[in-house]
Deep mutational scan, measured.
Amino acid sequence: GSKLPPGWEKRMSRSSGRVYYFNHITNASQWERPSG
């Protein structure tokens, strides 16, 4: 298991139950796992 880039964390969408990734530094969110 590799770590996520700085700022990123795994989140669960309440509406759909899907996992997404959220960056608390930039407030960005995306479905794809961030690389870096």
Rank of each mutant, 00 (worst) to 15 (best):
G7N: 06
W8Y: 01
S13V: 11
G36E: 14
G17F: 03
S16P: 05
Y20F: 08
N27G: 15
A28W: 08
S15G: 10
S16W: 05
S35I: 13
G7K: 01
G17L: 06
Y21W: 07
G1A: 12
S15W: 07
Y21L: 00
N27K: 15
R18S: 04
K3G: 14
G17P: 02
S29A: 14
R14G: 10
H24Y: 15
S29N: 05
L4P: 15
S15D: 11
M12W: 15
K10D: 01
S13Y: 07
Y21D: 01
R11P: 01
E32D: 09
Q30F: 04
G7A: 04
G36V: 13
G17W: 01
S2M: 11
Q30S: 07
K3F: 12
I25K: 06
P5I: 02
S35E: 13
N23S: 04
R33A: 11
S13G: 06
P6F: 11
S29D: 02
P5G: 05
K3R: 12
R18W: 05
S13A: 10
I25E: 10
K10C: 14
P6G: 06
S35V: 13
T26P: 00
K10L: 13
P6A: 10
G17N: 10
R14Q: 11
N23E: 02
Y20V: 02
R18Q: 09
V19K: 03
E9Q: 07
K3A: 14
N23V: 00
G17E: 06
E32Y: 07
V19E: 13
Y21T: 00
N27M: 12
S2Y: 13
V19A: 08
V19W: 12
K3M: 14
W8N: 00
R14H: 11
G17V: 03
L4T: 02
S2G: 14
G7D: 04
Q30R: 04
R14Y: 08
L4Y: 04
H24E: 09
S35F: 12
T26L: 04
Q30V: 03
T26Y: 04
R14T: 13
I25R: 07
G1Y: 03
T26K: 03
S16F: 06
N23Y: 02
S2K: 10
S15A: 12
S13N: 10
H24T: 15
S15E: 11
G7R: 02
Q30L: 01
F22K: 04
M12H: 11
M12V: 15
F22R: 02
R11Q: 03
V19S: 08
M12C: 14
W8M: 00
P5L: 04
G1K: 11
R18K: 12
T26W: 04
R11I: 07
P34T: 00
S16M: 09
Q30K: 02
S13R: 06
G1W: 00
V19T: 10
Y21F: 06
S2A: 11
A28P: 01
G7V: 02
I25H: 11
P34D: 01
R18V: 08
R14W: 05
S29T: 14
H24D: 06
K10Q: 14
N27V: 04
W8D: 00
G36N: 12
S35L: 13
P6K: 07
S29W: 15
S2T: 13
P5N: 02
P5M: 04
K10F: 05
G17K: 09
W8G: 00
R14E: 12
G36P: 11
Y21H: 00
V19P: 10
I25W: 08
Y20L: 02
N23L: 02
S29Y: 14
S13K: 04
S29R: 14
L4W: 03
P34Y: 01
S2H: 13
W8P: 01
R14M: 11
E9S: 09
P5H: 03
G17I: 02
N23P: 00
G36F: 13
T26D: 04
P6Y: 12
S15I: 14
R18N: 07
G36Q: 11
N27T: 06
G36T: 11
E9T: 10
G1V: 11
S35G: 13
R11V: 06
I25P: 02
M12T: 13
R33S: 06
K10H: 05
R18G: 07
R33I: 11
G36Y: 14
W31T: 07
W31P: 05
M12E: 09
E9H: 10
W31S: 08
E32G: 07
W31N: 06
L4H: 01
S35H: 09
G7H: 10
E9D: 05
I25S: 06
N27A: 08
E9P: 00
K10P: 09
S15T: 13
R11S: 03
E9I: 10
F22E: 05
L4C: 09
F22A: 03
W8K: 00
R11L: 07
M12D: 05
E32S: 06
N23A: 01
I25D: 09
R11T: 02
L4I: 04
S13H: 15
E32L: 06
K10G: 05
Y21P: 04
W31F: 10
P34W: 03
P34A: 02
K3H: 12
S29V: 15
H24R: 13
N27F: 08
S13Q: 12
P34K: 00
M12Q: 10
N23G: 00
T26M: 05
G36D: 14
I25T: 07
P34H: 00
K3D: 15
S35K: 09
E9K: 05
S16E: 08
T26N: 05
T26Q: 04
L4E: 04
Q30A: 04
S29K: 12
R11C: 15
W31R: 08
E9Y: 04
N23T: 01
L4D: 08
Y21M: 00
R14P: 14
S16Y: 07
N27R: 14
F22S: 01
G7P: 08
R33Q: 09
G7M: 05
S2R: 11
M12L: 13
N23D: 04
V19C: 15
G1R: 10
W8H: 00
F22Y: 15
G36R: 11
S35W: 10
N27E: 06
S29H: 13
F22W: 09
R11G: 03
G1I: 11
R33H: 13
Q30D: 02
S29F: 15
K10W: 05
R11W: 03
E32K: 05
H24M: 12
R11D: 01
W31M: 08
N27S: 09
R33E: 13
M12I: 15
W8L: 00
S13I: 12
I25V: 10
E32W: 09
R11K: 10
R33N: 10
N23W: 01
K3Y: 13
Q30G: 03
N23R: 00
S15N: 11
L4K: 08
P5Y: 02
M12A: 08
V19Y: 13
T26H: 04
Y21R: 00
Y20N: 01
N27Y: 07
S13F: 08
G17H: 08
F22H: 09
E32M: 06
S16T: 14
Y20R: 02
H24W: 14
N23K: 00
S35R: 07
G36L: 12
S15F: 08
Y21G: 00
G7E: 04
K3E: 15
P6S: 07
P6N: 08
S2P: 13
K10Y: 06
L4M: 05
Y20A: 01
I25Q: 09
R33W: 13
P34R: 00
L4N: 01
G36A: 13
A28T: 15
W31Y: 11
P34C: 06
S29E: 07
E9R: 05
